[in-house]
């Protein structure tokens, strides 16, 4: 590596620019920028409105922040080469149980949060143990877990359960200084997962296990622990998303997770951001860009008042297209 400080400022800038462009998640931000620009032009021409009007922002905010938080956990799981299809129902479990426990009583807020976090940790632990110790394919293991949670959830709650106290709604509507609390929440989760993946041994082990579990294990990494940890982290982010949604709509309902299709959407966002389904590659910034692309699409389609169903078609095409480009680039590099 060239020592950047010894070079002339202009060369230095060029080199830094190249470095940024070559970083794994850079292309997706370029794509994000292009989509955003196109969307703003189309929207302002067709609608004489602005792309990110406050109303439009409001309507998609919930989805974006909720999806963003759980997508961070899903990123860890995909990096270790696993997958988590149970987050949809875990989000519902978190939202319904927390609001049922709090039952509009501010004194029980901490209790509600702690209980659902404990449930989440257990679910993540169970997912991880079934995958590593019983050697069940992660797709099947977490699909089975989602069936289990769905049954328990629908047998216990038919409708909105309890309510969160007004103070708890600060999480969804409050301002910390000039910044909306949900953004701080999302920022906190992003920062935590980024630090974990970038600066901790556990994070580095996650990439190693995702690259090749066999090689990682033979080099002395306790691969089972790493996979279990990733699943616990993912489950915890799902719980946080559930808490946020409960704060937003005041009360948890059993259908909010599956209706939002969070399992598949979070996987789509992560994959859109360049994290490989096969594991070992990717990171939080790509995922964040993936979430934002889905967000920009939602917002522009909404303000264009194009039939909302066409959004799904556009999403499908963009997801397939993005991954096709990623695999093309990787295959080209290999040759």
């Amino acid at each position: 590596m060239t020592d950047l400080t010894s070079l002339r400022p202009k060369t230095r800038l060029v080199l830094i620019g190249r470095k940024i462009l070559r970083a794994g998640s850079a292309p997706i931000f370029v794509v994000l920028g292009v989509i955003y620009l196109l969307a703003s032009i189309v929207v302002s021409v067709a609608n004489e409105g602005t792309l990110l009007s406050i109303d439009a922002l409001e309507s998609v905010l919930s989805r974006s922040v909720g999806l963003g938080i759980v997508a961070m956990g899903q990123t860890c799981v995909l990096i270790v080469g696993s997958i988590d299809l149970s987050v949809s129902y875990l989000i519902s479990v978190s939202a319904t149980y927390s609001s049922a426990i709090m039952n509009d009583d501010p004194n029980k807020m901490a209790l509600g949060v702690v209980v659902v976090l404990a449930i989440g940790a257990l679910v993540g632990l169970a997912n991880g143990l079934v995958i590593t110790k019983l050697r069940v394919n992660p797709f099947v293991a977490t699909l089975g877990m989602s069936f289990i949670l769905s049954g328990v959830l629908n047998a216990s709650f038919q409708d909105y359960s309890g309510a969160v106290p007004d103070q708890f709604q600060y999480l969804a509507y409050g301002y910390f200084g000039p910044i909306l609390v949900p953004f701080i929440l999302l920022g906190g989760v992003v920062a935590a997962v980024w630090i974990l993946l970038r600066y901790t041994t556990m994070g580095h082990h996650m990439y190693a296990v995702g690259g090749s579990e066999e090689v990682a294990r033979l080099s002395g990494i306790k691969s089972h622990r790493v996979i279990i940890a990733a699943h616990v982290i993912c489950a915890l982010t799902a719980v946080v998303t559930g808490l946020y949604l409960a704060a937003r709509i005041k009360s948890g309902a059993p259908w909010i997770g599956p209706d939002g299709n969070y399992s598949l959407e979070s996987i789509a966002a992560v994959v859109l951001g360049g994290t490989a389904l096969s594991g070992g590659r990717g990171g939080v910034w790509g995922t964040l860009a993936g979430v934002m692309i889905l967000f920009v699409l939602d917002t522009s389609f909404n303000s264009l008042q194009v039939d909302e169903f066409l959004q799904n078609v556009a999403r499908g095409v963009i997801i397939i297209g993005a991954v096709a480009v990623y695999t093309y680039r990787i295959n080209k590099r290999r040759r």
């Binding site: 699909l143 089975g144 989602s146 069936f147 289990i148 949670l149 769905s150 049954g151 629908n154 047998a155």
Partner: peptide, 8 residues
């Protein structure tokens, strides 16, 4: 609803 759980 419990069918889902048993199925899982």
């Amino acid at each position: 609803e419990l069918r889902d759980t048993v199925e899982g």
